Structure formats: structure tokens, C-alpha cells
Amino acid sequence: MAELMPAASTLPDLWLDWCAVTGTPADQHDQSTLELFRRQACPSRALRHSLEPRAGKPAAPAWPFHLRPGDTALTRIIRGGSSHIGNPDVDWISRLRLRRLLFAAVLIAPASLGGLGLDRRGIRSLTPDGLLDLRPRIGRADDQAACPACAAWSWLEILGTNSGWSRGSVRALGRAFDGPTDGVHRHELADPRPEWLDWPDQANLLPSIDRWGYLDPYASMHPSSLSNLIRTMVATAGAPVVERQQTEPNPAPPVRHISQEEEAAILRRADELNARIARLLDEFS
């Protein structure tokens, strides 16, 4: 029987950080790689032992081992994230990141919870065509605020908007809440922005988001960033959910337009002020 590696979700942070720095695949556990890791990172004996190949154990997906596979962790993550998205005090960039978090949770959660059960490599190599085949397997829930398929639908709307529309459209979508759908789940509706399918072979369904809200159009997020995202899922699953009445943000006040008469008066006052300043400069020069 072929030797299998430890599950990516159980890999220690020191190993993941070392792999990110050295460019080593996290599932590369051959003896020469482990020896180099031992010399450079000085891990404990227990940590080294946890990385050694083990035979006879099935490979596990990237789902955090802190979350039991038989509980309701995925719906708790989605419901908690949806609650934060509905918080008017949360900025639009954080809302984008929350939607990405929920989508990532759907990708790695076990099929028994409604997810796709992908590992880390599967997440980063997933293409639109690949997701198109897997999407029917995503679970559904009666509560739209905890529905895996709806969480995926919402993130794909952002990806499609980022692919074929302006950044202003992405910002507007990030600022918006999930509006009412008259009892119909969002995933039952057609994709409003199917442009996420425009690059069928490009593995970029989980891009990085910078501090200004720009989504990387070329590649999926770095493995170390994905590790942070998975750790955040654990915290989200354990956090209490605050039920909120989702309402749209207050509309921006209307822009006041200046009439031609007002503009002429403003310019006249400005000319008078400039002339006064010029006289004062002449007087004290």
C-alpha cells in the first residue's frame, strides 16, 4: 500500500511557514525534504514525527481538524459570516473577504456537511471549468443565511463582477447586503455575473484581496494566506452569531449642483479676495 501524507489541515504552522518561505509543496514529505526542514527550522521531535509518511491512513481534506466532521460547523461558519456581512459597521473590503472565506469553507468542508472536500492543492488549482462540474455537489440548507450553495453563488457574483466590470462595481457589490429574494434561495437564481467562467482554464477562484479592495486577477492566494484563512474558519465557527435585520446602508446625500449665477458670484468673490491679498503684499513688500 502506498504511503500517505498527513492531512494538510493537521500540518503544523512551522512546517507551513517553512514551506511558504522555501517554496516547498506542503505535501512533499520525502526524507531529504524533512532533513532539510530539520536543519533549517529546528523543529521538535514530536513535530518531525507528525510529518513522517504514514501507511494505511486515508488522506483527509483541508478541513480544520478542530472541527468535528459530523457536526454543523460549515453552517455555523456561513451563518456567522453572513451575520458579519449584514453588519452596517463592517467595511466593504472586509465584506469581500468574508464572502471569500465562506466560499473557501464550502470548498474544503467534508461532503457530509455540504462541502466539496478539497485539499489545499485542489483549492489552488481549481478552475472555473472544474467548479462547474463540482458545483451541483454543493449542499443546500433551508436557512438561506447558512446555505453553502448560496455562499458559493455570492462569491461567484463577486468574481464575475471583478472579471468583466469596473472596480466601482466590485466596491458597490461589497457594500451591498444580501437583499430579499421572495423566499427563493440565491443559488436557485441564474448567476448575475457569469463572467467568472470567461477563463475556464485559469485557477484563480480564490484570489488575494489587497488593502484597497483589489482582487488579484491572475492567481489564487498564497498557501500561507490560505492557512490563515482556514484558521479564521475555526474562530468563526466558534463565535456567537448576532442576528441582525439586514437593511441597505443609508443612501448617500444628493449632490448639490451650483447654478451659473452662483458660480459667477463665487468667482467674483474670489477675484475680490485675490485683489485684496495683492494690495496687502504690495503695501508690506
Rank of each mutant, 00 (worst) to 15 (best):
L4A: 15
M5Q: 15
A8N: 11
P12M: 10
P12L: 08
L14I: 13
L14Y: 00
W18E: 11
C19Y: 05
C19G: 04
T22I: 07
Q31P: 14
S32D: 15
F37T: 04
F37S: 03
R38P: 00
P43G: 02
S44A: 05
L47V: 11
P53I: 04
P53Y: 02
R54Y: 06
A55C: 09
G56P: 02
L67W: 03
G70M: 04
A73H: 03
L74A: 01
T75G: 01
T75A: 02
I77L: 10
R79K: 02
R79G: 00
G81P: 01
S83Q: 01
D89P: 03
D89E: 15
D91L: 08
W92A: 09
I93F: 02
I93Q: 09
R95Y: 03
L96F: 01
R97M: 08
R97Q: 10
R99M: 04
A104Y: 06
I108V: 15
P110L: 06
A111F: 12
S112C: 14
G115D: 06
L118E: 01
R120E: 14
G122F: 04
G122E: 10
I123K: 02
I123F: 06
R124M: 08
P128L: 09
D129L: 04
G130I: 06
D133I: 13
R137Y: 04
I138E: 03
A141M: 02
D142Q: 14
Q144T: 14
C147F: 02
C150F: 02
A151R: 00
W153H: 15
W155K: 01
I158C: 03
L159V: 00
L159T: 00
S163V: 09
S163M: 11
S166T: 15
R167T: 13
R167S: 12
G168K: 05
A172P: 01
F177G: 10
G179N: 06
D182C: 07
H187C: 05
H187E: 01
H187N: 00
L189N: 08
A190S: 15
D191K: 03
P192S: 03
P194W: 09
W196K: 07
D198A: 10
P200D: 11
Q202I: 08
Q202G: 05
L206R: 06
I209F: 04
I209A: 05
I209M: 05
D210R: 10
R211D: 14
G213W: 09
G213C: 09
G213S: 10
Y214G: 07
D216I: 00
D216N: 11
Y218M: 09
S225L: 08
S227R: 14
T232Y: 08
A235I: 11
A239Y: 01
P240A: 12
P240Y: 07
V242R: 12
V242N: 06
V242I: 15
Q245Y: 06
Q245G: 05
E248S: 15
P249S: 05
P249R: 05
A252L: 15
P253T: 09
V255L: 15
R256F: 12
H257D: 12
H257W: 14
I258C: 12
S259N: 09
Q260S: 11
E261D: 14
A264C: 07
A264E: 07
I266C: 09
R276A: 13
D282H: 12
D282M: 13
F284C: 13
F284E: 13
